[in-house]
Amino acid sequence: MRGVPLRRFAGFAVVASALIAAGPAAAQGPAPGEVNVYSARQEALIKPQLDAFAKATGIRVNLITAGEDAIIERMRAEARNSPADVLLTVDVARLIRATDAGLLKPIRSEELEKAIPSQYREKDGRWFALGLRARVFYYNPEKVNPAELSTYEALADPKWRGRVCMRSSSATYNQSLLASLIAHKGAVAAEAWARGIVANMARPPMGGDRDQISGVASGQCDIGVANTYYFVQMQNGTDAEKAAAGKVKPFFPAQPGGGAHVNVSGGGVATNAPNAANAQKLLEFLASPEAQKIYAEVVFEYPVRAGVAVAPQLQAIGTLNPDTLELSLLAAHQAETIRIFDRVGWK
């Protein structure tokens, strides 16, 4: 609450406060207080969990969403007066980048440690994964025999020349996938793989994840790579999306010695959190069975908490056997992935 009354008088105070006050109605007294969330996840995908939290605890949740790096930069610029209590991102590399910048502080919480398996949280409690997303293949069953499919590595084989739909390397998900390959096989092999994929592309990289699936469905390519929840959302989307999703089949590829590549969405408590206790409460809530169920059913992510069921629609497309790679390695190799992408001409 520090500084808030004064801040309201800065600049266009009257209008500003009028507009700010126009936010979610908050009738609570001062007792439960509030918690300020900086989220890189879109509002629609995080609002249900936050609303449930507010309802359960009476704590008012203030939210801003923005791109991950921008929001980290904002926290950095606001420094010790930053109002941020909780940072939520959809990429482990960004969580670690924020950690390295000293923006997240360690918290000890039995609740969280119990709920989240150790490979999905930082050992000192600076960040916690809250949901898993897998990056898998989608193929045209008329052109591809599933027996031909195995690993990500195999997709660089020349037999796929001109048959692969890929998204731009600016997409975090592809950076994360390549980072996992670097971690497994080393930078040289990973670069060769990226070169092979570029050679196999049916068209220059473009569009979002859904566009890769649509590309396969429309016959532009025979196989594409996209995250699982987009496919499930398409199955429940517009008529055109439903039709496209109906024409392709998902396949869960494996990493050498592991399962499908996974990234996480997650969060941590801000170093300068003015409402640190509430921040911890929020994280604990997000790891609770109630919130994990929302992650599963609204966002179609895989819940991190054991015992919470995967959404039936997601379960229906296959069983996830997640890669067991240590998540911090995805962050460690991330900058290297851009260099490889640039060198091999993966736009």
């Binding site: 500084g3 808030v4 004064l6 801040r7 800065a10 600049g11 606001e78």
Partner: peptide, 11 residues
């Protein structure tokens, strides 16, 4: 403490 006077405001 004056906190953030400008950052994060409409101004």
């Amino acid at each position: 403490s004056t906190g953030l006077l400008l950052s994060g405001t409409l101004a």
